[in-house]
């Protein structure tokens, strides 16, 4: 188990409990009350730490190396997943995965950025940073879903679209822009869930859902806090302040009416219980699909265009 810096008191106590549990003495039972006491203490501690997380701590949790990724959710929530590859133009992008599956017996198209868990797979998945072909593959799959009248579910977890030389040569900006325009008028329901990091255009490029939900410990912003710090404070050191200033947590976004709801995570973060978080996400998807399937296609598309057309806050001069 990987612990974050602010979880150190929890880590220390859990280590102590483990040590006590491993002591092999005849009168082991004598330690039981102590272990029980410490366990209670660790539970209380976790509740109090996780009750008051700062924005930066949520960013850390969203990036936790043990956190479930897109394919983890797909395998836990869906049956019959058939992964599909390639943008039919240039190549296949391993940072963007997708395919048809069923969820509770209903056909869906699931698409999301995929991160790796060890050095080799992180490189293979390009740290969840898609190239233009990733966005074009995502759009191809969405159009397939539209053709067969199947709802689209997008799972967002990316530190950003890849800022590389070849990505520019192949039109990263154009790929994302076209996705935004085409998603606006896609004639099937789109449900978007931010499961980890939601960094800027790279996230929005698959994120124009009819309904958008965020997991409790995720972030969604126009820029990552470190990059914001480097540009506005001219140093990387103000990431905590930048994270607060950007108002990038699920609570902030719900307050600003950018998202439609927050999906609760197990205590300690999504990585503490894959089954539980996948079940919570699945419940949300199923109830939202039921709601969106009632709408006619025209109503659905009009609703989506209106939703995004009304975003922004400004003042009118007298």
């Amino acid at each position: 188990m990987n612990y974050l810096d602010f979880e150190k008191p929890i880590a220390d106590l859990e280590k102590k409990i483990e040590e006590l549990s491993n002591i092999d003495i005849p009168e082991n039972d004598a330690l039981a009350p102590e272990i029980k006491r410490l366990q209670q203490k660790v539970d209380d501690l976790r509740v109090s730490i996780f009750k008051n997380l700062t924005s930066w701590q949520r960013v850390q949790l969203a990036r936790h190396p043990d956190r479930p990724y897109t394919l983890d959710y797909i395998y836990k929530m869906c049956e019959n997943f058939v992964e599909l590859h390639g943008d039919r133009k240039f190549g296949d992008d391993n940072a963007m995965v997708g395919g048809f599956a069923t969820i509770d017996g209903q056909s869906v198209m699931v698409i999301g950025q995929q991160k790796g868990r060890d050095t080799a797979s992180r490189k293979y998945r390009n740290f969840g940073m898609a190239n233009p072909e990733g966005y074009r593959k995502a759009l191809r799959l969405m159009k397939l879903a539209e053709k067969f009248d199947i709802p689209v579910i997008t799972l967002i977890d990316t530190p950003g679209a890849f800022p590389g030389l070849e990505a520019e040569a192949r039109g990263q900006a154009e790929a994302i822009a076209v996705n935004l325009r085409e998603m606006a008028v896609l004639r099937v329901p789109i449900i978007t869930i931010i499961i980890g990091e939601g960094a800027s255009g790279g996230a929005l490029g698959i994120g124009m859902g009819d309904r958008v939900y965020m997991l409790e410990n995720t972030w969604y912003s126009v820029i990552a806090p470190e990059s914001c710090s480097s540009i506005l404070w001219k140093t990387w050191d103000y990431k905590e302040q930048a994270a607060e200033a950007l108002k990038l947590t699920a609570n902030h976004l719900l307050e600003m009416k950018i998202i439609d709801g927050i999906i609760k995570e197990p205590l300690g973060g999504a990585h503490r219980n894959y089954e539980e978080i996948a079940a919570n996400v699945k419940t949300q998807i199923l109830s939202t699909m039921k709601e969106l399937k009632k709408l006619s296609k025209d109503k659905l598309v009009d609703g989506r265009i209106n939703k995004y057309s009304s975003m922004g806050v400004w003042e009118t001069l007298k």
Binding site: R181, A184, S221, V222, L248, I258, S309, V313
Partner: peptide, 26 residues
């Protein structure tokens, strides 16, 4: 690019303008 000081609201202007342009295109 997008204005950092409006964070996710700036990001949503990409969605807003693109959605409107989809209508114009149609």
């Amino acid at each position: 690019g997008a204005r950092m000081m409006e964070s996710v609201l700036s990001l949503m202007q990409m969605a807003k303008t693109s959605a409107k342009l989809a209508k114009l295109s149609e």
